[in-house]
Design a protein around this nucleic acid. Structure first.
Lengths: 235, 235
DNA sequence: CGCTTAATTGAACATACTCAAAATTTGTGG
DNA sequence: CCACAAATTTTGAGTATGTTCAATTAAGCG
């Protein structure tokens, strides 16, 4: 983590759309006052599970994974975050230690807003509270669905669904079929709740079946319908 | 569900402690205005996954399970709620359908507050918003931990932890060792994310080891330390 | 009581994991 | 830009954990 070599605008001039949008300009500007702009190299940890927060992070660009560590040192990825999204605000609000670790999956520029400013803005803007409630509700909904999936769906379905989630979350490159997000096989397994080997074998199945194509770490979705079928999702 | 044969007080006179406590009395009273008091018999469903909410429930007494249904009809219990706790407020706030089903685990008296009143109070009381944020944060934290457990811990540890969670959540009877909550073996499995048979076999193990005693559906915790050890929890 | 639901036990089986080894890719310093 | 080291991917074989299915016993309830 070091200071940013690129010019990062103040919050009020930032082009990223996020929940700050519900705030009047002078309130947004408050958030910028003691903001720090940081650069994180791919793979670098933004905060560790167990550490104590001093504020909240807002991603200017790049992608971040949020994961928890199990007893045997195996990771479980619980969520992702991308441009404009907030990180660590839960722990900052409740004054608890971080319950998960955030790691940059690409080179990232991430701003840090001290929790005092954040709390101040939160207390004075009920719209903003509602937005936070909405974010949390959404995360909770996803987490509980995730629990059901990992608890009951077979690995094959979970890995197929993982690919679909990655597509919906981060989209395709210009070619309309290559996932923009780049993950190791292990990380894909860490999302789906399985091992690297099983992930590899299952991806190979999808390749054989013509659903996807692998090109190094890049994943191309060739047949979305087949993948939907494999994921066994109905909506 | 029928009208209550017992006298249920208005919200401002209710002895249950919950997040309404942060509101001034006249705001609490607002919640009561169009409140309905309902009785649910053990096993009755309070709301179904997929239905649309018209408000929020507040448990006057009794215990409720919140669960989701998997593809093969298998249930996953995601949460419990007891006296004073709120149900269904997430869906009410986001105007989405319920994402889980709530079922009475005992005979329950549960009040229903129309969502308009709830929203009104929420908009006018930033403290109240903060409390809701706190509730959601806490649920999310637990859900993500649960995900990690189900994804990575062996069944034996999960079932031991389930018993511990039930103890912490609902406590013991006067004897100081019998869990107050009564569940079927299947339901215990539905929490831990396993089958009825595996649950039974694992509970038998704990009995053999002297950690617990089974007496019909009642579960007595005889040796908490042994159970903690089996659950492999460190905090 | 009789009937339905829940609990229990056993045995066969399947899914997914583990461990090990080889092949390939990636990153880095010279 | 190449070469080497490190990390990642891939494949195989054996195995364990937990599931499934079927049958039996016990419990709850009207």
């Amino acid at each position: 983590m070091k200071n940013s070599p690129v010019k990062i605008p103040s919050c009020s001039e930032c082009d990223n759309k996020n929940i700050f949008g519900c705030l009047p300009l002078h309130e947004i500007e408050k958030l910028s006052v003691n903001k720090d702009n940081n650069f994180f190299k791919k793979g670098q940890v933004i905060f560790y599970e167990g550490n104590h927060p001093h504020g909240m992070y807002c991603i200017y660009n790049g992608k971040v994974k949020i994961s928890k560590l199990g007893d045997e040192g195996k990771e479980q990825i619980v969520r992702f975050a991308g441009e404009g999204e907030l990180l660590g605000y839960r722990s900052a609000l409740s004054n608890e230690s971080y319950k998960a670790t955030a790691t940059a999956m690409e080179d990232c520029y991430i701003c840090h807003i001290p929790k005092e400013k954040f709390s101040e803005v939160l207390n004075n803007n009920s719209n903003f509270s509602l937005e936070i409630i909405r974010l949390l509700s959404d995360d909770l909904k996803k987490s509980e669905q995730n629990l059901l999936n990992i608890s009951q769906k077979p690995v094959r379905e979970r890995i197929a669904e993982t690919l679909l989630v990655l597509k919906n979350r981060f989209g395709f490159e210009k070619d309309g079929k290559t996932l923009t997000i780049v993950l190791t096989r292990r990380e894909i397994g860490d999302i789906a709740g399985t091992t690297t080997e099983t992930t590899i074998r299952t991806l190979s199945e999808f390749v054989k079946e013509g659903s996807i194509k692998l090109s190094g770490k890049k994943i191309l979705i060739l047949n979305l319908n087949k993948l939907l079928l494999a994921a066994n999702v109905h909506d």
